[in-house]
Structures are given as structure tokens and as C-alpha cells.
Write a protein that binds this DNA or RNA. Structure first.
Lengths: 231, 231
DNA sequence: CTTTTGTGTGTACACTGTACGCGTATGGCG
DNA sequence: CGCCATACGCGTACAGTGTACACACAAAAG
């Protein structure tokens, strides 16, 4: 017959792993990791849930995949670069990526199947430190300290239940409501005199702690040179 | 009648919120947070899932409750104590609690309904710092840095997919298997020359970073006194 | 006695991930 | 051209999740 019963006007471009992961990342970014289900992801791609299993072993593989996509957004530091600015830039790059993908914070370090971008990232950091003269032990110290701080800060930052100083007042009131008035005086003082002040933004704390950590590493590396760039 | 039709030999001691939370904590400690479901928890208490809802509004309230139980295990620091040893002890106490309840790491800071033990803990830390002469700003700096490090370290520590140096070899092999031999030379060196060495235990890194952080805070507080107790 | 209140149960519903089998479109082959 | 293997997506089904709702039964109160 000349008339097709169902004319494939727009030919179905087949799914692939890449498109599945991209859509999953976009979905997680927009609605958080909990809105990423096989059904919503299928809907996003105009496809049933089971179609995804042709391109991905299971949901865990999707999670691993989008976590590695986040790692791939982090700038790699050059091996020959001065370690301190390189580590500072890396820390900020990681922090920025975690802000862009806040659902990823608790997943970046806890996946047991690291992807290529993850491994490449770690390798580049170690390369920079070793080239800069860090012993393996010192590199281990520095790396542990830096990563603990970076991920810890991102965790505490993202878990703050407010966005602006105006929210702080509201949240603090409901949080402290069930308790006696003078039960937590220091906490109340801290909130009213600090967190509720106009210019307050917890994100600013990141740089301060980062400099403390970097200076500490520098001092441990060369005990005489105390740069003390802490403001 | 003298003969009871169904003699309540062991009279059903009624459930209460306390027992529900204790059982939930025990369950999470034994099998991880994912094994804590309303059905398993009911089974643990010899009761149907719906019975729990008489004592708890929903599952989130159970999570909030057991997180606060973990907070209640952390030693409170005295307001008048020297801040540096007090913060050191607090950090270790938090770290120890997180090791005992590793399921809690990602929940301690991310619950938006902090319980009384949580608030009491924060209040005590702030009291110590303020009494020791920290301005509100400096207390905010120090608190942010310390907590970021503590929780960040716990996160990275708990997410390591191995327990002993023997496991490291196995895990590293399977992790690096899909990649070319010389693709990550620094990572391979780090693993073989450091993580796989006999005495290696990542937990030891905690104290090192903690001293760096404490010294950094001390220096920021009194820029002249550089104690440099870093080994 | 009746009535109220507290406590646990059973059923049911809307979700989740995913195992299994069936159709169909596509591309290589004779 | 016909044929067929393969790749791809779909539909159904199942076990598991949190929990809303109506009910059963106990103890206590009036």
C-alpha cells in the first residue's frame, strides 16, 4: 500500500547510554536525586521505564554515570603548576560543581565504582602534589585534609535549611519553638547577632577555611615559611 | 469466671516512643539505615508496622529521633574549659560516635528538624568558644572549619570500600581493571607505595588534619603565637 | 452497667526497581 | 527481491516501600 499506516515522520532516533545519562543528570539537577526514577527518566526520554535497561545495567549504574559526569566538570590541575594556587583552584572548582549539582554531595565519595573522570581527577591532583615535592606521606596528609574540608563544607552548606538571612529567622523560630526560652542562649545569640545579619552568607566561610587549610599544609611542608595569609 | 479464656501470662507491656527509637537505633546499627523499614522495625518489636504510628508521626520522625540519640552520645564540652583541648576532645567524640553509627554521617547535618541533644551540643560548643574569647565572627569561622573537617573526614573514611591493606589490593585491582595499564600512574603509585603498606590505616589521618585545623584556628585567634605542634 | 480512650491489626493504595517475554524496526545477507 | 538475526522498546507482573483508613479489643472512667 502506498499509505503507511503509521508514517514515521520523525524517525525515532534510538536511545543510547550517553543520552540516558544526560537526561538523568538533567533530571537530578532540576528535581533532586529522589525525583530520578526509572519511570520519570523514561518519561523524560519519551520511552517506557524498561527501555532504559537496554542501555544501562541497573539504576546504580545510572547513579555512577551521572556522578562521573559531575567529576568531568571539575577542572584538572596541571602537574607542573605551583601547588598552592592549583589546590586552591581545584577546591573552588569542586565546590562550584557541588553547588551546581547539590544532589551529588553525598554520592561523590561514597560510590564504590569510580568512573574514569573520577580516577583522572585524583590522578591529576596527586601528580601536582608529587611534582611540587610532596612526599607520598605528605601528599596523603594534604589530600585527606583538603578533600575532607571540601566535602564537609559542601555537606554542611547544602544542608542548611535556609537560603537568605530572612529565612534564617523563620527557620530558627520553628526550630527553637518546642524549647524553653533561655535554654540555648549561645545558639540564639549566634543566630540573631550573626546569621540573621544583613550581609550574612554562609558560602563566604569556604574561602576562610580553605586558606587556613592551605597555610597549614604549606607550614607542614616547609616549617619555616609561615606565610600567614589569613585575614 | 475463675478460668481466664486467654490468660495474659506475659502482659503486653505497651510500646512507647522511647522503645521504638531504641529499637530503630539498634536496627540501623546492625544492618545499616536501609534495613530500617517500618516492617522490620515492627517485627523487631513483635508488632505490626502500623502499630508504630501510634507513637511516631512518620518514618522521618524516627530518623530525626535516632539521629538525636547519636548526638546525645557526644560528650558536651564545658564552657570554661581551655578551648583547644576541648575542641580536640569534641572532634574525637564526634568522630567516635560517627564510627559507631556510620549510617548517621550523611544525616547528622542534613536533618532540618534538629532534636534537643543536637541543639544542646551546638550551644555547648559555642559557649566554650565565646567564653574562651572568640568573637562571634571567629567562632563562626572556627565552628565551620572544624565541623566541615570532622564530617568530611567521616564521610571519606566511611566511604572507603576497604577495611584492611589486604582489601586495598583487591579493590584497587577491580577498580582499575577497565582502564589501560599506565593510565593513572600517580594513583597506582599512591596505592601500592602507601595504601597497601602493612601499617596503613586511613583513620590515622584524622589526628593529623585535626591538629592542622586547630593550629590554624589558634593562629587566626592570636597571630603571634605559632605553636606549630604539627609533627 | 455503659462509654470513652488507648493500642495494635488488616487491608489497601500509590509508589519504587526490575525480571521476563513479546512485538517490531533495522540492517546485512543470499 | 526475500529472509533473518539483531537491537530496541513495551507490557505485564512481582516484591518491597511508607502510610491512610476502618476495625477489634483492652483498660479505665463515669
Amino acid at each position: 500500500m502506498s499509505a503507511n499506516p503509521a508514517p514515521p515522520l520523525e524517525r525515532r532516533v534510538p536511545l543510547n547510554r550517553e543520552r540516558v545519562l544526560r537526561a538523568a543528570l538533567s533530571l537530578a539537577d532540576r528535581g533532586g536525586i529522589e525525583t530520578l526514577t526509572m519511570r520519570t527518566l523514561g518519561q523524560e526520554l519519551g520511552v517506557g521505564p524498561m527501555a532504559l535497561y537496554r542501555h544501562v545495567r541497573n539504576k546504580d549504574e545510572i547513579i555512577d554515570g551521572i556522578v562521573d559526569l559531575v567529576f568531568s566538570e571539575i577542572d584538572l590541575c596541571a602537574a607542573g603548576a605551583d601547588w598552592k594556587p592549583a589546590m586552591r583552584e581545584r577546591a573552588k572548582s569542586v565546590g562550584a560543581a557541588l553547588v551546581r549539582h547539590s544532589w551529588a554531595i553525598n554520592l561523590m565519595e561514597s560510590r564504590s565504582n569510580p568512573g574514569p573522570a573520577n580516577l583522572r581527577h585524583h590522578d591529576a591532583v596527586l601528580a601536582n602534589l608529587r611534582t611540587a615535592g610532596f612526599s607520598i606521606e605528605m601528599a596523603a596528609h594534604a589530600y585527606s585534609l583538603l578533600d575532607s574540608y571540601i566535602y564537609g563544607f559542601a555537606t554542611t552548606q547544602m544542608s542548611l535549611p535556609f537560603e537568605s538571612p530572612a529565612d534564617v529567622a523563620e527557620v530558627a523560630r520553628t526550630m527553637l519553638q518546642p524549647f524553653a526560652a533561655g535554654e540555648f542562649p549561645n545558639l540564639v545569640e549566634f543566630i540573631t547577632e550573626h546569621a540573621m545579619q544583613p550581609g550574612y552568607d554562609y558560602a563566604n566561610e569556604f574561602d576562610y577555611g580553605l586558606e587556613v587549610v592551605l597555610d597549614g599544609v604549606e607550614r607542614a611542608l616547609a616549617p619555616d615559611a609561615a606565610s600567614s595569609s589569613i585575614r
